[in-house]
């Protein structure tokens, strides 16, 4: 029982971590909270659902389709709602927050019109395959989710640490002007960041479909708010914080449901936001001084 809950918690937590990474990458580079990330994630889930359930295509095709569509959405988001606001004088720092809220309700209601309201079944071909080790049951789906998450997080960390473009991204996050002076093509880095973050959201969408077996057009909102809670908890713009925060939230939600009341599961994330902001506004792994955080 305990071991199974632990595995459930880690599975859920690694999905949360991937969603939160999408937020943290964009925040790190642009100092913007992308309120549309949850809805981009939801589109990934729906595209995956259509490919797997309606077209009976293999899971890999679902990942590919979701990545393509969400990357395109990310590109559009950057061109339509973020770039026009950048570098203009007299634009409030709240402007990108509001414009991405606009994108989020636009996408949520587009999904409503395209894919319909209510829960949609997400049929993973191997949903019933499971192993029993001792008294612990592990589903193959959980193994796949964990493997995809580990590969994705490892790949992202390596890319950020080792490659030229990853270093460019970190330099841009440190200081946009300095990076530009040093010859980094910041415009391209910014576009790439939003596109990569969105594609990661798309992958997370497919993973959520696999984990829960159903999706609806509200998952973007609830997952988006949880992602926000995690990056605030882990520290805005911190990659390690997003991963750790995601795991902690996934585990605590699973154990609250298992040993407490399921009704308050969704409140944990928001209570976390409020408590962390009040006690340690920079988050677990945060670095910026509170004064600089506007």
């Amino acid at each position: 029982m305990f071991a199974e809950q632990l595995i459930n918690g880690i599975t859920l937590g690694s999905i949360y971590a991937i969603v939160a990474l999408g937020y943290t990458l964009v925040f790190g580079v642009l100092d913007i909270i992308n309120m549309a990330h949850g809805e981009i994630f939801m589109f990934g889930a729906f595209i995956g659902m259509v490919i797997v359930t309606k077209m009976n295509a293999p899971l890999a095709a679902a990942f590919a389709g979701a990545v393509l569509v969400t990357a395109a959405l990310g590109y559009l988001l950057e061109r339509v709602a973020l770039r026009p606001l950048r570098g203009r004088t007299g634009v409030s720092h709240l402007a990108p927050l509001i414009s991405t809220i606009g994108v989020s309700i636009l996408l949520e209601n587009l999904a409503h019109h395209i894919f319909g309201a209510g829960n949609q079944l997400f049929e993973t071909p191997f949903a019933e395959i499971r192993f029993t080790i001792g008294s612990t049951t592990v589903y193959l789906v959980q193994v796949v989710i964990l493997a995809v998450s580990v590969v994705l997080m490892g790949g992202l960390s390596l890319w950020l640490a080792r490659t030229r473009s990853g270093k460019g991204l970190r330099a841009t996050a440190e200081s946009l002007e300095t990076a530009e002076l040093l010859g980094v093509d910041t415009k391209r880095i910014i576009t790439a960041t939003v596109v990569i973050a969105s594609a990661m959201g798309g992958i997370a969408g497919v993973l959520v479909g696999m984990a829960f077996n159903y999706i609806n057009n509200q998952i973007g909102l609830s997952m988006g708010l949880k992602g926000l809670a995690i990056i605030i908890f882990g520290g805005m713009g911190s990659v390690a914080g997003a991963m750790a925060g995601g795991l902690i939230l996934g585990l605590s939600e699973t154990f609250v449901v298992a040993y407490g009341s399921s009704g308050y599961r969704d409140a944990i994330a928001f209570l976390t936001i409020i408590v962390v902001l009040l006690l340690r506004p920079q988050g677990l792994f945060g670095r910026a001084a509170p004064e600089a955080r506007r």
């Binding site: 909270i33 709240l94 708010l225 605030i232 009704g263 308050y264 969704d266 928001f270 936001i273 409020i274």
Partner: peptide
């Protein structure tokens, strides 16, 4: 919330609204 500015305040208040709603549901 006084120590929070800008987007942080927006998100904390958004979280507050959701907590209130979850409490009313439960």
């Amino acid at each position: 919330s006084l120590r929070l500015t800008g987007v942080y305040l927006a998100i904390a208040t958004l979280g507050f609204g959701e907590v209130v709603r979850v409490v009313f549901v439960n």
